[in-house]
């Protein structure tokens, strides 16, 4: 199992060099911001950057496996098919979430607790942005291969994107003022955060079990 994790990390290292451009550009833009370029502000922009890079790394990992036919070899190694999937989830999603949590702790520490509700909501949103697409994409990529699954994901997000204006602007969100949001109190916020985390955990669990099932049935 350790070997599988190391294989993923080496893979990230191989593709990570080209991804360094993303944080470099963001850091450059950030530093151009002059007075606004504080350490706290830097931590504020980290979560979405981590999300973006995590998604790219996770999908690249499966793409590289597919291109190199790694899984055919991996199945001959003294590991089970379940462990091959476990390693992928641990590194591709687990590590990203861990970094998000670390960034959240750092942000809370640097802010001295001020505006913690906003920080928490932002962190949850970025974690969701990271976990949801990868959780959907992983089983699809394992079942249908990288090419088809990218099309399916684009279709899903296209439909979701197209449905937001219909649902949000016509009925739901138009009547809500910021002060009247149900999550405006700390207790409601913590409850909401817990609900979001629980949703992400369920989604992740479902995604993992589907991926294992697909991979165990897969002919390599």
């Amino acid at each position: 199992m350790k070997g599988l994790l190391l294989k993923e990390l080496y893979g990230f290292y191989a593709i990570g060099k080209s991804l360094l451009l993303i944080p470099a550009v963001i850091l450059g833009l950030f530093l151009l911001n002059g007075e606004g370029a504080t350490l706290y502000a830097l931590f504020s922009i980290l979560p979405p950057v981590v999300s973006l890079i995590s998604i790219i790394l996770a999908t690249s990992s499966i793409n590289m496996d597919s291109a190199s036919k790694w899984n055919s070899y991996a199945v001959t190694l003294p590991v089970s098919r379940r462990q091959i999937i476990q390693a992928k989830y641990l590194i591709c999603i687990g590590a990203g979430c861990l970094i998000q949590i670390l960034v959240l702790i750092l942000r809370l520490a640097f802010s001295g607790g001020e505006g913690w509700t906003g920080i928490l909501v932002e962190s949850l949103v970025t974690m969701g942005v990271q976990v949801v697409p990868v959780s959907i994409l992983f089983p699809l990529m394992i079942r249908f291969g990288p090419e088809k699954s990218r099309l399916i994901l684009a279709l899903i997000f296209g439909l979701v994107g197209a449905s937001i204006p219909l649902i949000g602007f016509n009925e739901g969100f138009s009547g809500l003022e910021p002060g009247s949001w149900p999550l405006s109190s700390p207790a409601a916020l913590i409850g909401g955060a817990a609900a979001v985390l629980a949703f992400l955990a369920v989604l992740l669990g479902l995604s993992y079990s589907l991926s294992v099932r697909f991979f165990c049935r897969q002919e390599l």
């Binding site: 070997g3 190391l6 294989k7 080496y10 790694w70």
Partner: peptide
């Protein structure tokens, strides 16, 4: 992966 070196492959397999 094409980017892996024999050394890295050895490191991976040593742990498997």
């Amino acid at each position: 992966y094409p980017a892996y070196t024999p050394q890295r492959i050895g490191s991976i397999l040593r742990r498997l």
